[in-house]
């Protein structure tokens, strides 16, 4: 896969990748000359293909961990075979999903679904607000969501409605 900024005739560079949402990930590429960004969406099958081959978008800068594919992708692994005191950087990383491999968060961070919150930590979203949230591009959605939630909290709202989104909107470049 290569990307060309047709305005500048320059190869685009990988910038960032999101965690999967409903199985698909979004990768951001940027033109180093004009800083135009494009988003590439991988459907669940494409995401799964990379995952199954233990390949990472944006390259793999970290040293390979022993048996990283097995340890991050084997759903039915026994706990003790997945130590978290393996090396300092791994010991300090958080387990992303309860009961699963603590390596998961480190090794294929880019391929793990956002962990399900065990209890609602932020304000409640109204159906209309949720629908609008869905319309925000996936790669900025988590950021936008956090921003709106903290806006709501700061302003003492327990429920996020369309009106609160409108109020929060001024703070964000993205349209929603």
């Amino acid at each position: 896969m290569k990307f060309l900024c047709t305005d500048c005739d320059t190869a685009m560079k990988f910038k960032d990748v999101t965690r999967p949402e409903q199985g698909s990930v979004t990768a951001l590429f940027e033109c180093p000359d004009c800083f135009t960004e494009i988003a590439m969406y991988l459907n669940p099958s494409e995401t799964q293909m990379l995952k199954s081959l233990d390949l990472k978008l944006g390259g793999n800068n970290e040293a390979a961990q022993p048996m990283q594919l097995v340890r991050s992708q084997l759903e039915t692994a026994k706990g003790e075979s997945m130590p978290n005191e393996f090396s300092p950087e791994i010991a300090s990383s958080e387990t992303t999903e309860g009961g699963k491999c603590p390596f998961t968060g480190v090794i294929s961070e880019a391929f793990q679904e956002e962990p399900e919150p065990t209890e609602p930590t932020g304000p409640v979203w109204s159906a209309e607000a949720l629908e609008r949230l869905e319309r925000i591009p996936a790669f900025v959605r988590p950021m936008a969501k956090m921003g709106i939630e903290s806006f709501a909290k700061e302003n003492g709202h327990d429920e996020i409605t369309g009106a609160i989104m409108d109020a929060a909107r001024g703070n964000f470049p993205a349209q929603f």
Partner: peptide, 17 residues
């Protein structure tokens, strides 16, 4: 076998579905 949780645990891989 050294990585699976129980006797009756099959090998299942992580995936969206």
């Amino acid at each position: 076998d050294l990585l699976l949780a129980e006797d009756d645990t099959p090998v299942l891989w992580n995936a969206h579905t």
